[in-house]
């Protein structure tokens, strides 16, 4: 290398970022060029000077301050437990009413559930329009009958649960209650504690 290496090259030399051929060229130039050696030494001085910056002792334990500012994180295990319980309740309810649902599906005449009739009707507007014929929608609302749930005797080792029935009203109330509990449970779990205003 006949020309003087640039500042960039000298920096890369000290950072050991030069490829081997460039490194050799620069080294051979430095052996011959006192000016470049001086430049390199000035740069090397900065490297050495920076190693003299000493570590400072930390006078304060940061742990209490950090812990007091940590957001509360819900453990994942609680999530899994809640999800498993909710899935179990939903599955149990589905199984309990499955036979009634099947029966309902088989015995219902779906074609006659909704019947729409178009008729003509007269609407009277005071003054301007004496009469106007418009089609009128008549909707016959389907009547869905929820049968009473008859639960059989459940025999388990040591004890048995007697047969009992659940009325349609009770069943609807039960489904609504479970749904509301499910929503409320999710809201409580999803909402971070620090946003609920708890202070430690």
């Amino acid at each position: 290398m006949n020309h003087h290496p640039t500042d960039t090259t000298l920096n890369e030399l000290l950072d050991q970022a030069l490829d081997s051929s460039t490194y050799d060229q620069v080294q051979s130039h430095l052996e011959q060029c006192a000016d470049c050696r001086t430049r390199l030494e000035a740069l090397r001085f900065v490297f050495n000077a920076l190693t003299e910056v000493t570590e400072q002792p930390l006078a304060l334990d940061l742990v209490p301050g950090v812990l007091s500012r940590l957001p509360v994180r819900q453990p994942q295990i609680l999530w899994r437990l809640a999800l498993a319980m909710q899935s179990g309740v939903a599955l149990g309810l589905l199984l309990a009413i499955s036979s009634q649902l099947t029966q309902f599906a088989h015995t219902t005449d779906w074609g006659n559930l909704v019947r729409i009739e178009l008729t003509k009707a007269s609407l009277t507007f005071s003054g301007l329009i004496q009469s106007l014929s418009l089609p009128r929608l008549l909707l016959q609302w389907p009547v869905i009958t929820i049968p009473t749930l008859e639960l059989p005797v459940v025999r388990l080792p040591g004890f048995s649960v007697p047969a009992f029935s659940i009325s349609p009203a009770s069943l609807i109330a039960l489904v609504l209650a479970v749904g509301l509990l499910w929503l409320a449970g999710n809201l409580i779990l999803l909402h971070p504690r620090h946003k609920r205003g708890s202070k430690r």
């Binding site: 002792p57 334990d61 742990v63 950090v66 812990l67 940590l70 994180r73 819900q74 453990p75 994942q76």
Partner: peptide, 25 residues
């Protein structure tokens, strides 16, 4: 990461000096 604050406080205790020195520099 799974919410164990005691484990995190131990990490803070171990690395607080190093992190502080970065910030101080």
């Amino acid at each position: 990461a799974s919410g164990d604050r005691h484990a995190f406080s131990e990490l803070v205790r171990r690395h607080q000096s190093v992190v502080y020195n970065v910030a101080y520099r």
